[in-house]
Design a protein around this nucleic acid. Structure first.
Lengths: 219, 219, 219, 219
DNA sequence: AATGAATGAGGCTTCATTCAT
DNA sequence: AATGAATGAAGCCTCATTCAT
């Protein structure tokens, strides 16, 4: 009763002027960098404000909490991830038509790795955020969305597989892709390591397809 | 204060040491649990003290800083990891003698996954600690040790591979194994997911071995 | 900007004034409600702006500070209080003419309680504002005005009393009346409690009148 | 789950050493003074720390929040209030035996006023705290305790009265007594005003007793 | 040696008020 | 004139670490 949900009704408002939009953009850009090289916990609102040349009060005008900043980043990222996976999907689809399943697995693996590598840094942060302890609902939702995307993709590759299997595969796949987006030293995408991941996923998807075919044949 | 006439000259030293050991053990146990479900940053020294029934002053007598606690945990973990990998190595070695390289890759993958799964929880924490941004030297060293172990292991499997290649593989492998030790929901080891990882590593190592053989053959 | 050719020279001024009035009224109404259930300190300018559908910048155009809002409320309240007491005075006066002093005290007590009860809520806020620590001059003045009104009223009832006495009585009376206007739970005016206050003031004023008569008689 | 109720388990702990007790005493004394002349809202924890020569961290060791400080003060106060009312009760009791009911009312009024005046300042604060918006449970309980005490006292004076009546009387009485403890200018106890309150309560209690007797007689 | 107390920098957040479009 | 954005001092609170008994 005394705790009205929005006594101010302004905090966290979307910007309505050009200047506000610029601010928000600056903040998101700065926080991406900070989250990237310090990790969620170590980043401070004061730090974000400083890095984005924003008065602390202005920061809070648009983002009522550190969580809100992380959420915004995550949302932004999830969108590009979704779009990217859709593109991967499309490619895989057309390729799948003219190729055998094995070739398809091969190209899917490459597409995934390339895609993840392409979003290194700018948006790879999100993967770190998604793992932070205490996922709130909005974060949990985003994670689920990513998994769904992957699951769909895998479903195309392995038409005969059970949903449960696809779901588990998506989990494993997500973990590996996370490795792709987060190069161990936090910086450059190390071509050799990318190749390694590519090779790993090719092998993995290939094997899965083969097993799937056998199963189908037998039945 | 003056109530024990100290009949034997031994009293005073031994009990103290024993108590010290117990304290340290209690502290490490408590912090493992705490780090596990709150993450490094969220854990407080006061929290560790409380959870291990230790006065904050005493905690600092044994561990001069929060980092020291994490380091101790990490050291402890690295030891079991080292020992475990040695065991895996031994197995792989003897198996490798009597089997083909493919079978060897197969069993190595299984051994690795089983081993990582076996240290879930109790020591899986360490993996989280090792990733904390701002690795200090002692942490960096531990990470390097793990990578070395894996690299050696891979060297046995792929005798002809270049060191650089092995190092890169170790990185990818470590990432995947980390996934095994940290089940996504932070709790149970989910058999289906373990199988998935197992399958992934089998495929990966297998393929690597095959490629390696071909390369060797051609040369 | 240039879309009204302004056919009549009147346009532009009158509507603006009207809008300004509405704004001010809305602001005052909203702040009354807010001060009422949150207290002076807890109310925020942003909150007032939101509740009155006013942009924060506009709010500051009409009221240059939070204090200014409180002052306006207080002034508004003081006016109705003054008017009310005047009415009570008038009643008491005409009644006093045709009745004995005792009956007069009786009816004055009732009139006061009824009057205070009648301004519960809408304007009871003011009493809270008046008590806020750190009364600035304008607030102190309002308080003095209220006391003056009461003192005058009491002077009519107790023609022989010294000014100092009347002043002290006004203080005590004001405190009790404050209780009438601020029901303990902050909500409804609880008839039983009103009766109690009525009874208390009757007894008090009655006794005062009796004593006063005796004193006068003796002298 | 993640929100363990007491992660630190230390905050708000009772002092266990002499020094701690001194600290707590100093804090309570300083905050009494501050609450007294600034009001609950205006007092800051930083202010309390400064006034009591306490580092902010130490303040929080013993009092986990501003509310906790207020509660402690209130508890302390309620105790003296209870004790004081008990003494008043005892007096009234013995006096009541040898005197008529009227005399009894008279002396009760005096005793109450004197008692409240006697705790001006040092503990009168509490009355202000008790009125602060958003009474939490502990505060509500203390308020109820005060009312109970008064109700009991009134019950002795008016043996025939219904509980509901006594309760209402207690409310009115409490409000008036609050006025006694909080001299308007926040400082000295102004003898003339005390007399006025005394006179008011005498008249009130007297009248109540008389009415009560009549009622009894008639019935 | 063991333990409670002390310390203070630093994090998050709010809000009155001013600025600029 | 109207409105959203900007500002920064100040409040609350936490926590790693050090002190003193």
């Amino acid at each position: 009763m005394t705790d009205s949900p929005s006594p101010t009704a302004l905090r966290g408002a979307a910007p309505k002027r050009q200047r506000g939009h610029d601010r928000v953009a600056a903040i998101l850009q700065a926080s991406t960098a900070l989250f990237l090289d310090q990790g969620y916990e170590a980043v401070t609102m004061t730090g974000i404000a400083a890095a984005s040349q924003t008065a602390i009060g202005s920061l809070y005008r648009f983002f009522p909490s550190k969580e809100a900043v992380a959420d915004a980043l995550l949302r932004q990222y999830t969108e590009s991830l979704g779009a990217g996976l859709a593109r991967v999907h499309a490619h895989a689809g057309e390729a799948g038509g003219s190729m055998g399943a094995a070739a398809s697995a091969h190209s899917l693996a490459d597409a995934l790795v390339d895609f993840m590598a392409s979003l290194h840094a700018e948006r790879g942060v999100a993967l770190a955020l998604v793992d932070a302890r205490g996922l709130d609902d909005s974060r949990r939702a985003l994670r689920a969305a990513m998994l769904d995307n992957l699951q769909t993709l895998l479903g195309t590759l392995l038409p005969g597989a059970a949903d449960a299997r696809l779901q588990t595969m998506a989990l494993a796949l997500l973990h590996v892709l996370k490795g792709v987006a987060q190069m161990p030293d936090g910086s450059a995408p190390a071509p050799a390591l990318l190749d390694e991941y590519r090779s790993m996923l090719r092998a993995y998807l290939n094997t899965s397809v083969e097993q799937s075919l056998e199963t189908t044949k037998c039945a």
